[in-house]
């Protein structure tokens, strides 16, 4: 499957990936509205981690043996047949956080308001290139 590759040596820590991810997963899909008009603000599913000069954007790796999927008690976490992405069916999610506990990368977030739905990278369902990759100004993320 196609995966998002991280080239940490070129990550400039601008967080445009986070911003664009947040917008993509907002209700309006419009940047200014997503930030200033939507309450609660949606969560980015990619997170930039920083320490000293090093930084990188990290999102779900869609592992082959995805522990979040294996440990989900409802079957809400599933693998999309077409893209092989690990997705979360928010209707089935009960917010038990077994997925968070299982993820070795710590890339699953709890939704701020509902505290019910795990938010994680969905590879921008339907997009040819995920928005974090598309909007990385320095090609520190690649989809290949």
């Amino acid at each position: 499957m196609k995966r998002i590759r991280i080239h940490e040596e070129y990550c400039i820590g601008c967080r445009l990936c986070e911003i664009n991810c947040l917008v993509k997963h907002s209700r309006s899909g419009k940047i200014i509205k997503a930030f200033r008009g939507e309450e609660p603000r949606s969560l980015p599913r990619v997170r930039v981690e920083e320490e000293g000069y090093l930084s990188f954007a990290l999102q779900c790796r869609h592992c082959d043996d995805a522990p979040c999927l294996e440990n989900c008690p409802t079957g809400a976490m599933y693998r999309d047949e077409e893209t092989q992405a690990v997705l979360c069916d928010e209707d089935k999610c009960i917010g038990c956080w077994m997925c968070i506990m299982s993820c070795p990368l710590g890339v699953i977030q709890r939704e701020r308001k509902t505290k019910k739905v795990a938010s994680k990278c969905d590879l921008c369902r339907g997009e040819e290139i995920p928005v974090c990759v598309k909007n990385c100004p320095n090609e520190a993320l690649a989809y290949e």
Binding site: R15, I31, F35
Partner: peptide, 14 residues
């Protein structure tokens, strides 16, 4: 100010 979303990209880049 109508457009700024306080995302701080400018802060980090300067």
């Amino acid at each position: 100010e109508n457009r700024c979303i306080a995302c701080q990209v400018c802060v980090r880049q300067c």
